[in-house]
Design a protein around this nucleic acid. Structure first.
Lengths: 266, 266
DNA sequence: GAAATTTTATGATTGACATTGATTGATTTG
DNA sequence: CAAATCAATCAATGTCAATCATAAAATTTC
């Protein structure tokens, strides 16, 4: 067996097991321990795997993502204050007990905090949102079924016949990567798929985007602007963008920064 | 079991309960107390957990500050050692990468720890199981969609057309309230419904019941004994019960208590 | 083009080192 | 004080790195 073959076998074994031992790899390749060790050392410096005592383990993202703590990576929680103000304005739209749909995302995730004191019926495809609402609120929580994608933090079924088709709400709340005259932009194809599934299940689409999103452009267009009914953003929005939104016949809500905010809730 | 694997199991266990004892971790990993202590010490200096007298606890306030944390009420985690031994024997049955179905329950929940070092494809209707596996393992996790019931900790769709129908596995693991010649008993109608949904999606049904369950009788019969293929219990099982199981043509596995256990894994 | 030589990859051996489990005595807890 | 827990130690086993020998491949030389 050639060196390349062995390397392939080793990498494959390491992917499947938490840790592949040297003797195990010997059996797999028919090579001696010394050779396997040399291979592991080589793959280690090539950063294809991590060398540990007794064998090798797959390199890669944090093996224990949960221990990192937050449901989203830190760099994804930028503009946190704006997002919170926006999320609060979004929840202010919701009446007590009303069923709503929340699409996963870092902005929509902020809705969990103002929702903590509510008793709504929330349908979501976001695992962290469901988790948080379950633990901190008395809302009734429904989740879509399917594969849980760790990176995107969403649940998505590859099949069409899932619970999603059986849930309907007046409003759906969603975020986006960017907003342009062309329409609502998203970067991740997986998120697009997830959003598409939910979009048809609500009358009114509410888009939550902080004002920086008007400068962002992504490659994938989720839907055109006329599909959106309400857009909530922060005070950073420019006159030109505001005009664009109004022109598209979208109700524009500018969430006041927390300092200026008056309690709207009764 | 390799050092890395043990560390994974330990971190997984520490996540679940506020404090995991040394003996408990011995049972979970099959290692000696001395080794567990050394592992805890190592993870302590690595700041992955905090070392306390008698065991270890999760570091930091909580991954999600201020939240409840524990997936099950404390009184539900009785017979914890037996349940862990049973869960471990159950996980020993599954091959690396194999798809499996896990029905929610306190016994089946214990499977998350030995699963922490695996890379299987797990379909479950249990929110805590999905959550734990997501955070502490590299397993691929699928969840059924629907309403999340807080008390029972399961996800159940009132509709028939959910993802469940699209997932198939060789084995399904389930718990029960009681076992009698009449069949497998369950107390909660909701759990029955959830179990019924999954039962058809696997060839082989594996029932995890600690030996006290043979004395319990409940009002609802989930299914007859001949539907069960494998039963895993602890050493507390009596001869009469064992005879009953064997008579029903069920393969009986008695999970050895941690002290007597030999490593089965190759 | 064939033989000789160098290079490279591999396998085996050996001594050094690390990990583990058991034992024992000390320490802490209730 | 009794039970549980811990730290220290030691022997056994497992793992590693270094070295050398062999065989195949590549290169050089004639």
């Amino acid at each position: 067996m050639h060196e390349r073959e062995r390397h392939g076998v080793i990498l494959s074994a390491v992917q499947e097991r938490p840790v592949a031992s040297v003797v195990e790899l010997c059996g797999l390749t028919g090579a001696s321990e010394a050779t396997i060790r040399r291979d592991i050392a080589a793959l280690h410096v090539a950063k294809k795997l991590r060398r540990v005592r007794g064998g090798a383990e797959a390199i890669g993202p944090n093996p224990f993502p949960g221990l990192a703590g937050r449901p989203f990576a830190v760099n994804e929680t930028r503009n946190i204050k704006q997002k919170q103000a926006i999320a609060r304005a979004a929840v202010d739209l919701v009446e007590e007990g009303e069923p709503i749909i929340i699409n996963g995302g870092t902005t929509t995730f902020q809705m969990v905090h103002p929702l903590a004191t509510r008793r709504c019926q929330v349908f979501t495809n976001s695992f962290p949102i469901a988790e948080h609402l379950l633990k901190t609120s008395k809302n009734s929580v429904l989740i879509s079924g399917g594969v849980i994608y760790r990176e995107q933090n969403i649940v998505l079924s590859p099949f069409d016949n899932d619970v999603t088709r059986n849930f309907y709400a007046r409003r759906m709340f969603m975020g986006a990567q960017g907003v342009a005259p062309l329409g609502v932009m998203e970067a991740d194809p997986l998120l697009i798929q997830a959003e598409q599934k939910l979009i048809g299940q609500a009358d009114e689409l509410v888009l939550l985007v902080d004002s920086t999103k008007f400068k962002h452009r992504s490659s994938l267009v989720l839907c055109s602007l006329d599909r959106i009914d309400v857009m909530i953003t922060d005070e950073g929005i420019g006159d030109r963008e505001a005009a664009m939104i109004e022109a598209a016949d979208i109700k524009l809500i500018v969430a006041p920064s927390s300092a200026a905010r008056e309690d709207v809730a009764s």
